Simulated scan of single mutants.
Amino acid sequence: MGLHKILKLIVGIVGIVALVVAGMVWANNEAIVGGDSQNLVDIMILLAWIVIGIAIVLVAIFVIKGLFSGNAKNTLIGAGAFLLVVAISYFAASGAEEVAMKDGEMLSASGSQWVSAGINAFFILAAIAIVLMVISGAKKLVNK
Rank of each mutant, 00 (worst) to 15 (best):
G2K: 07
G2V: 12
H4K: 14
K5H: 04
I6T: 06
K8D: 11
G12W: 03
G12H: 02
V14E: 09
V14A: 09
G15R: 07
I16N: 10
I16H: 07
V17K: 09
V17R: 05
A18Q: 13
V21C: 08
V25R: 10
V25N: 12
V25H: 09
W26C: 13
N28H: 08
N29K: 15
E30P: 08
A31C: 04
I32E: 06
I32Q: 03
V33C: 01
G34M: 09
G34R: 09
G35A: 08
D36S: 11
D36H: 04
D36K: 08
S37W: 02
L40A: 06
M44H: 01
I45W: 00
I45Q: 04
I45A: 03
L46W: 07
L47Q: 05
A48M: 04
A48G: 02
A48Q: 02
W49P: 00
I54G: 00
I54D: 00
A55Q: 03
I56H: 00
V57Y: 06
L58A: 04
L58P: 01
L58G: 01
L58F: 02
V59I: 07
A60C: 04
I61Q: 06
F62I: 09
F62P: 06
F62K: 08
V63L: 08
G66P: 08
S69W: 05
G70C: 00
N71K: 11
A72D: 14
A72I: 14
K73D: 11
K73H: 10
G78K: 11
G78A: 12
A81Q: 15
L84R: 13
V85M: 06
V86E: 15
Y90K: 12
F91K: 14
E98A: 09
V99K: 15
A100F: 04
M101S: 12
K102A: 07
G104K: 09
L107C: 05
A109S: 10
S110L: 07
G111C: 08
S112D: 11
W114A: 12
W114H: 13
A117P: 08
G118Q: 04
G118I: 05
N120T: 06
A121Q: 07
F123Q: 07
I124E: 03
L125W: 03
L125D: 07
A126H: 03
A127C: 07
I128W: 00
A129C: 01
I130Y: 02
L132I: 10
V134L: 15
I135R: 05
I135H: 04
I135E: 09
I135A: 06
K140P: 04
V142Q: 10
